[in-house]
Nucleic acid binder design. Sequence first.
DNA 1: AAGATAGGCAAGCCGTGACTTGCATGTCAA
DNA 2: TTGACATGCAAGTCACGGCTTGCCTATCTT
Lengths: 92, 92
Amino acid sequence: MGDVFQAIADPTRRLILDELAERDGQSLFELCGRLAMRHGVGLTRQAISQHLALLEDADLVHSQRAGRTKLHHLNTRPLRGLTDRWLHEREE
Amino acid sequence: MGDVFQAIADPTRRLILDELAERDGQSLFELCGRLAMRHGVGLTRQAISQHLALLEDADLVHSQRAGRTKLHHLNTRPLRGLTDRWLHEREE
DNA sequence: AAGATAGGCAAGCCGTGACTTGCATGTCAA
DNA sequence: TTGACATGCAAGTCACGGCTTGCCTATCTT
């Protein structure tokens, strides 16, 4: 299981999470298109694919195959309480 | 101003934040010692110093000079609501 | 003033991460 | 079955990040 902190360290990966938060269950091609149109991302399909693999490894994205396409779903559970480790200390 | 996500991506920097959360206002030498003793960090003083500079650049650490020593203080404000960007979308 | 202490600056090494290119695999339509 | 479409795999390039080494500056003590 990959490191969540490292997964969200990359700006492109944060944009991917943004996109999935707005429209869940997108395919790889769909994501490439929308990232290019709406966020000015000029990356290759493979680049996005590798980012998705890393996000999956960090359990931030779940995938589900549907024929020859692969739908990607956002999983926000690893994000909940991520920073509590430091915020809670200040409340005492 | 540096990127907060990138700042907390490094495990050593997260340990530094842990240390400052537990005991605020430590000097560089103090941090080096406690990181070595309590967390098994075997890094040079310069390495820790560079991590601190990056944390300061991300506004996660404030520093204050006291004579020839420099005290470091944790600033958790940039951490508050860091992940709301994705968590809020799911609540609608 | 001189030595010791706390920290800063700069250059260099080295591994890793981001990205591309090229080819292979699998699935759907005609 | 054949061609087009969606994705996966692997190798290679390239730049950046983390770390070290060496030297310099500033402050306190005696």
